[in-house]
Computed example of a mutant assay.
Amino acid sequence: MEIRKILNNNVVVSQNGSKQEIVVMGRGLAFQKKVGDEIDHSKIEKTFVLETHGISEKLAKLLRDTSEKYLDISAKILDYAQSQLPYKLDEYLYVALTDHLSFAITRHKQAIHLKNPLLWEIRKYYKQEFQIAQKALEIIEKETGIALGEDEAASIALHLVNSQLSGENMATAVQITEMVNTILNIVKYHFKMELDESSVNYERFLTHLRFFAIRFVRKEKLEETVDQFFFEQIKLKYPEAYICTEKVATYLKNQFNWSLTKDEEIYLTVHIHRVTNRHKLK
C-alpha cells in the first residue's frame, strides 16, 4: 500500500485492494516520506474509506490548520453513529465534524460557551441523533478530558441530521428544524392539545414532516396524482384536520412562497387526523 497523497506527517491518502481511496492515520506515518513510498503497516492506527471524490482535498486543507486528533475523534463518532442510524452518513461529515470539534474545544478552552437556540427542538424532534450526540460527548471527553455541554450535543446532532441532505449547509438543517417546529405548533394550537410524543402516530407524523421539509429545501415537488373526487372525500371525512392543513398551507405560502399540491394536502390531512384523533380517543 503506497502513499498517494500526504495530508500531514500523521495522515496520508492511499488506495485499498478494491481501488477505493482510503485515509490512513498513524503517528509519524509520513515523516520523511514522499508520494509513491510504501506505507509502514506497523504505524497504521486507523483507516477509513472515502467514496466521494474531492473529500480528501477538503481534509488536506482543513488539516493545515487543525490537529488530526480531531479527525480521529470524528471518525470514532461517525463509526458509532453509522452503526446506529438507518441512513447512510455523508462523507463530508469527516470534514464538517472535524472542523466543528476543533472550534468547539478551542472555544471551551477560552471559556466561551455558546448556547444552541435549537437545543430544545433538536432534543425533542431528533431523538436518535441527539442520543448519538450525547454518546459523542462521552467519546470527546474520553479522548480529550474535556466535557462539553448539551448545547454542543445539539450541534453534533444537527450535523447528523444535515447528513441526510448530502452535504448541504447547516443553515438548511436549521431551516428544516424550524419548519417542523412551526407546523407542529400550528397543529397543537389549532386542536388546543398537547400531542402524545410517545405514540407511533406522532413518530410517523414527525418523520413525514422531516421528509416534507427536506423536499422543500431541495425544491422537490410531488407530481399531482390524486383525482379531485378523492381529494374532496378526504376533506369531507376529516374536516377539522383539513382546516388545520389549510393553516399549514397558509404559513408555507406566506413564509416560503410554497404552494402545496393536493397530494401533499392529503398526506398532511391524514397524518394530522391520526395524530390528533388517537389522542382524543385516548
Rank of each mutant, 00 (worst) to 15 (best):
I3R: 12
N9H: 09
N10S: 13
S14N: 05
Q20M: 15
V24Y: 06
F31R: 09
Q32N: 14
K34Y: 01
D37G: 12
E38L: 11
I44S: 07
E45H: 14
K46L: 09
F48H: 02
F48V: 09
V49L: 14
V49R: 00
H53K: 12
S56D: 14
E57W: 06
E57F: 02
L62Q: 14
E68Y: 14
E68D: 14
Y70V: 10
Y70E: 05
L71H: 02
L71C: 01
Y80P: 04
S83L: 00
Q84C: 11
Y87G: 04
Y87A: 02
Y92A: 00
L93P: 03
V95P: 10
D99C: 01
D99P: 00
H100A: 07
I105P: 05
K115L: 08
N116D: 15
L119D: 03
W120Q: 07
W120V: 12
E129C: 09
Q131R: 15
K135N: 07
A136C: 04
E138T: 15
E141T: 05
T144E: 02
G145H: 13
L148E: 06
E150Q: 13
A153D: 02
A153L: 04
H159E: 09
H159S: 04
L160C: 04
L160R: 03
N162M: 03
G167R: 13
E168F: 02
N169I: 04
T172E: 04
Q175W: 05
V180Y: 01
N181L: 01
T182Q: 14
I183D: 05
I183Q: 06
L184G: 03
I186Y: 10
K192V: 14
M193A: 06
E194D: 14
L195D: 04
S198H: 12
S198G: 13
S199Y: 02
F205S: 06
L206K: 15
H208D: 06
R210L: 11
F211M: 07
I214V: 11
F216E: 07
R218G: 08
L222A: 08
L236K: 15
K237Y: 07
T245Y: 04
E246W: 02
E246T: 07
K247D: 10
V248M: 14
Y251G: 10
Q255Y: 02
S259R: 14
D263P: 11
I266H: 12
I266K: 10
I266R: 12
Y267C: 00
L268P: 13
T269K: 09
H271C: 00
T276S: 11
N277V: 03
R278Y: 12
L281T: 05
L281V: 11
K282T: 08
